[in-house]
C-alpha cells in the first residue's frame, strides 16, 4: 500500500498548486507513472479515487511512462525489456527506484554509472478545470 502514500502526495500537490477556489473546479487530473517503479495501477487509482472523492468529484487518468536508460560510460541506451530483475529486487525498486544502481549494470559495458532518462516516479501531468 505504498501506492496510497504516493496518491496522497498527488492530491496534496494539486491542492497546494491550485488556489482554493480553483481546487473546487478541478475536473480531472492526469498522472504519469514511471514504468521502473512498477506501481500497481489499480491500487494507485483506487487510492486516488478514495482520497480525491472525499474532496470533490475528480476523475483521475493514470498513464505509464516507459523507462529509458542511458549509460554515461559507453552511451548505450536501453529499455525495461533489458532490465531483468528477480522478484525481490523488483520489490525494492518499487519502493526506491534508485536502488536499481545497486543491482543492475549497463547491459553493454557493465557500468553502474548510467542515467534514468525517463520513466521514474510519479508526475502530475495535467489538471483540467471546469469553467
Amino acid at each position: 500500500m505504498h501506492e496510497w502514500a504516493l496518491a496522497e502526495a498527488v492530491i496534496r500537490a494539486v491542492q497546494e498548486k491550485t488556489e482554493k477556489d480553483v481546487w473546487r473546479r478541478v475536473k480531472s487530473i492526469y498522472v504519469e507513472v514511471g514504468e521502473l517503479q512498477q506501481i500497481d495501477l489499480d491500487t494507485f487509482t483506487d487510492a486516488l479515487n478514495t482520497i480525491g472523492n472525499s474532496i470533490g468529484d475528480i476523475k483521475f487518468v493514470v498513464r505509464v511512462k516507459r523507462a529509458k536508460f542511458k549509460c554515461r560510460r559507453c552511451g548505450y541506451s536501453w529499455s525495461m525489456k533489458e532490465v531483468d530483475l528477480d522478484e525481490e529486487i523488483q520489490e525494492i525498486v518499487h519502493f526506491v527506484p534508485e536502488a536499481l544502481y545497486s543491482f543492475f549494470k549497463c547491459p553493454e559495458c557493465g557500468s553502474r554509472d548510467y542515467n534514468l532518462m525517463e520513466g521514474r516516479g510519479v508526475w502530475v501531468k495535467k489538471i483540467v478545470l471546469k469553467k
Partner: peptide
Amino acid sequence: GEENSSEEIMMDPRAYI
C-alpha cells in the same frame, strides 16, 4: 455547456507531502 480549461504541467508531487 461547461467549457474546460486545462493546465499542462510536470509536477513532482513528492515534495508537497
